[in-house]
Simulated scan of single mutants.
Amino acid sequence: MTETASLFATAQSLNAQVYVLGDPAQVKDLPGALLFKSGRAICLLDGEAEVEAVAPHLIRIDAANYQRAGEWLNQHAARAPCATVLISPTSLEVLASHLRSFVDVMLPDRTIMALAFWDPNILAALNGARGDDTLHVRGPVFVPAQTHAFLAPILQWWYWDRNGRLQQLNGGQDSVPEPAPSIKTPLLLDQHQVDALVEASVPDNILHFIRLNMPGLLLRVPEPEQYPFVRSQIVRARLYNIEGTGDLVNYCCLALAYGESFDKQPDVAILLEQVKARVLTFENLMNEFPRDIPEVGNPLPIHPVTE
């Protein structure tokens, strides 16, 4: 029995329904790929057809389609952050309404922001997942009352991590609490929570800019290792007080070009210590970077990224 089939069997043992929260912005075949003949889906965002085409959908998976749905999920959701699996005894309409109420959150300055919990990595950071060592921010970002309210009608919530392994959110339960915890929505996030959510996306943002500006450098690292490589280099860059998207992108590009321990090269180490002491900007370091350090692999020109 596959892991997905085991999840579906668990739902049946709990007399619950299986749902998939699918993101067509990641895999455009959603939600249609999981609707089959008897399936139904509800979009979580309001808007015109062009918005709905890339908006998350809650999809009900009927027992008759468990095998087909499981095969699709095993093939796609384990490779791209496009879908998570929910087990709940509530109806499609009730669950979709509940999730919709958490789409918008309020920031400390009272502005409204969309909370992209359909992204497995944001979802896991919000609620915590004890077994997932691929998370940049382990969480939970939510305080207990927020977690209880968010997960109230959900018995189990599963997602695939960056290594394609199924992970369960903290807070799985065998029955829905009665009465369900009540909390005012939109949720009000404090600055610490906002900072944690921003941080959760930093490695992906850095990777995105490297792919846009210096895609050839990433060819030096196998794709499954690119995220952990960038994540580790962000940690090293911050030891030298290097912050800001542009500087972090450039630091990671140097690590890709000259090796992950390029900062230990004597001439580079001197410059980085000056950056750490804030007597030299990282932009100036890029201009003064020693030209006699051998690159890893075939040399490629580095075009510094500016914010």
Rank of each mutant, 00 (worst) to 15 (best):
P179S: 09
E295I: 01
E48R: 14
L126D: 08
S88G: 02
C82S: 09
G47H: 14
A80T: 09
E223Q: 13
L123G: 07
V221I: 14
V230I: 03
G70N: 14
P140K: 06
N241K: 15
E93M: 03
V198I: 14
Q156R: 14
Q191N: 10
P301H: 05
C253T: 06
R211A: 07
V249P: 00
L155W: 08
R278V: 02
R79M: 12
A116I: 02
A49W: 13
A257C: 06
I112L: 15
L218C: 06
N170Y: 09
L99H: 11
I302K: 03
Q193S: 13
V103Y: 06
T306C: 07
Y159S: 08
F262D: 08
R238V: 01
V279R: 15
G216W: 05
V202T: 12
H136Q: 11
A16S: 15
L218P: 12
P224A: 05
V105W: 15
M113A: 15
V27G: 00
V176H: 12
Q156M: 08
Q12G: 10
F102S: 05
V20Y: 11
V105A: 14
P301F: 04
A257Y: 05
P108A: 01
I210Q: 07
P144Y: 02
F262T: 05
H148F: 09
E178G: 00
A69D: 11
I61M: 07
M1K: 12
E307C: 01
K184D: 12
K28I: 05
I293G: 03
V230C: 06
V27I: 07
R162F: 00
P186G: 04
A152F: 01
G259E: 11
V141T: 05
P301G: 03
A80K: 13
D133Q: 07
V296G: 00
K37Y: 03
F289T: 05
T306M: 11
N241Y: 10
Q226D: 01
P186C: 02
Y227F: 10
N15Y: 13
E223R: 07
E288L: 11
T111A: 13
A114K: 13
A78N: 08
Q233N: 07
G297Y: 05
T84P: 00
R110W: 09
A11E: 13
S261K: 08
N74K: 06
Q67C: 04
L58R: 15
V18N: 09
D133P: 01
N298I: 05
S88I: 01
V305R: 12
I59A: 01
N241L: 08
A257Q: 15
A5K: 07
T4I: 14
L272F: 13
I42Q: 14
Q173F: 07
I122N: 01
T10E: 15
N205T: 10
L280D: 12
L219W: 14
L207D: 01
G172V: 01
A49L: 11
T306Q: 14
A129F: 00
G139H: 03
C253N: 12
